[in-house]
Amino acid sequence: MIGIVNYGAGNIFSLSSALERQYLNYGMVNTEADLDKYTHIIIPGVGHAGAAMKKLEQTGLVEPIKALKKPVLGICVGMQLLTAHSEEGDAELMGIFPLKTRLFDKNQGIKIPHMGWNNIEHKNNALFEGVTNLTQFYFVHSYFIEYNPIFDIATANYGTPFSAAIQKDNFYGVQFHPEKSGSAGEHILKNFSNLKQ
């Protein structure tokens, strides 16, 4: 069963609805003890990374999440929280990945936010099993995680190549919104729920 970290950062109704469409059971994680109830944990998030980190810190869940050995998936800002630092609010984040979250550079002739459907190139990670390469996913973000060959499991391009998905041990992150990315996105959620502990 999937636990959704409920720390007040944005809308979890779309995520829980997507899980329901896939017949995946879920519950909410409000306290450290709740983490034990679930086999898989999702950290959702929209809005401001610095503000989201503050909210997560207030729940007291930062250290318990970092200590987890079960599969954890961060979505959008939830993914960015797994990195060490964000330029959004110059915020120190969880630091599970030694990566930086940076603002897109408008001098590259791109519009910000990066909003809409973009294709990804993935590296046959279990999270993308059964997903055709160059499938499009729905993105909406102004900050991105710099490309790093060690942790990158899917890459997208917007002015510059950036990480559409990352993995380190049991920690996963996706920059796109699987709950809004059509059947391909629902497939990612299903794959996540099938990851072994």
Binding site: F13, S17, R21, Y138, H177, S183
Partner: peptide, 11 residues
Amino acid sequence: VKSVARQLNIP
């Protein structure tokens, strides 16, 4: 809106 969000998988 809730009803749409429950069933729709696009933004």
